[in-house]
Amino acid sequence: MDKKYIKLLILTLLITISTYVKQSMALDNDAMFSALSISVDAVDKDATLARKQAIANGQSLGLFKVLERIVAPKDFENLPEVPDEIISDMVQDISVSDEKTSKVRYIANLDIRYKPESIKKYLKDLGVSFVQAPSKPYLLLPLYYSQSNEVFLWESLNSWAKAWIMADYSVIPLIIPEGNEEDIKNIDIKDILSINKDAFLNWQKLYNANGGVIIAEIKDLGNRLKFKAIKYENGVEKEVIQLNYSYKNDLASALKTIVKNYILKTESNYRDSHSINIADDTFLTVVVPLSSISDWLNIESKLKEIATITKIELKAIKKDKAQIELWFADGLDNLSTSLNEKELEIKLVSDDIYEITYIKEDDSNLKE
């Protein structure tokens, strides 16, 4: 077989696999750039015009929700109004349900997905910082203390668990077990109450909660609720949020309000601390040594998980190395730190050429 043909076949295979990986990863962040259950209701001269107006209104409202989700509050307040024609260009697709029409009215629910790159470019051109990717997921365990001081995790009396399961969140994914047989087998409430950090680490692995574990407890003191959420990352206590809330008769609504306020607070904090301005992004020419094709796919996958990396452009690939243009924001030091977290390192190897490799294990302290 012709060598040129073989090289072309390999490169085509690489591009195909790379595209599949990129699309698969994009699905992980899809919720950040989607707006679900947008209710629209419009009246016009006829149903066709009413539908057109309703869709435009829904697209505008949906984009508002997406921008509110990814832009830090202080910047979101100053965003200009986006023209309808620009919004339409940002829409990837729309799913319509529960349509109702009359001669002059149109009602429906819309699920709208926006093009991430279009929104990112729009914010970049404005010089606005925004969150590039959601946080790692956390396992959240809701403990409910009744007025008689009984403690519940998933039992039917636990409206607290239901409030979390029904909650709306996006930037910080929460994994909330629903108390099926497998959950009951895996998680012992005694380990939660005794702060068994070894158990926490085990649960992180079982539920793919790479962020950590959050213990969210509520104590019903009779018309007053005492809330405390403790976040553990790899068994280490990282954050404690507490508040008191008074209510009259509707306990379920009070619990939902506390959940909503907690999510708003933590997601706002995440946006403030993880927003990146990519208007001043830059690029490096990087060589990646390879021992196999799977090496490149693995390293590329790790690079795509780093929020400050805005683009990876494959320039050339050979049997033993790949050459890329790596676009990133937030400085080389932060890029280096992020790479280290992925067990990768970057170093300058010649004038304007960098190299990314796996971090080599230091065997100087190993004993035979």
Rank of each mutant, 00 (worst) to 15 (best):
V213L: 00
L243H: 13
I165F: 01
S253C: 06
V171Y: 06
E181N: 12
S246K: 14
W203D: 04
N244F: 05
W164G: 00
V151C: 11
K185Y: 13
F227A: 03
I192W: 03
N261Y: 13
V128T: 11
A229N: 05
E150A: 14
E239H: 15
A216E: 10
V259T: 14
N244S: 14
S268Q: 06
D188Y: 14
I175N: 10
V128Q: 07
Y245I: 13
P177V: 00
Y145A: 14
I175K: 07
L243C: 10
A252W: 06
D168S: 12
K190P: 07
Y169H: 15
I172A: 10
L221H: 14
V236K: 01
Y138H: 06
K231T: 09
Q132D: 12
M166N: 11
I214T: 12
N223W: 13
K260M: 12
F200W: 12
L123E: 04
A199P: 00
L225Q: 13
E237C: 09
I165K: 05
Q147G: 07
E181K: 10
N149E: 15
E155S: 02
I263P: 08
N269K: 14
I172C: 09
K136D: 07
W160A: 12
D250L: 09
G211N: 11
N208G: 03
L157K: 12
E239M: 13
K238W: 00
K226A: 03
E150G: 07
E233M: 04
Y169V: 08
K190I: 08
I195A: 10
D168W: 08
Y262D: 02
M166G: 06
P177R: 00
K256M: 08
E178S: 06
E155L: 02
S159G: 12
D168R: 11
K197W: 04
K219P: 14
K260C: 05
R224D: 14
S135V: 09
F130R: 06
S170N: 13
F200Q: 03
S246R: 14
N208R: 15
S253V: 13
A252I: 10
Y207W: 14
Y169C: 04
A133S: 11
S129C: 10
A216K: 07
E267G: 01
M166E: 13
I215A: 04
V151S: 05
E239S: 09
Y247R: 01
D168K: 15
V240G: 00
K219T: 15
S135R: 09
I175Q: 05
K265L: 07
N208S: 07
D198F: 10
E155A: 01
F227C: 01
N249E: 15
Q204M: 15
V213W: 00
Y169A: 11
L193V: 00
K190V: 06
N180S: 11
I195S: 05
T257G: 10
I215M: 04
K219A: 15
K238R: 06
L201S: 11
S146Q: 12
D198I: 06
N210R: 04
N158Q: 02
L139F: 01
A254P: 08
K260D: 11
K219Y: 15
D183N: 03
N244E: 13
K226I: 09
L225T: 06
Y262F: 05
E181R: 10
L221P: 09
S129Y: 01
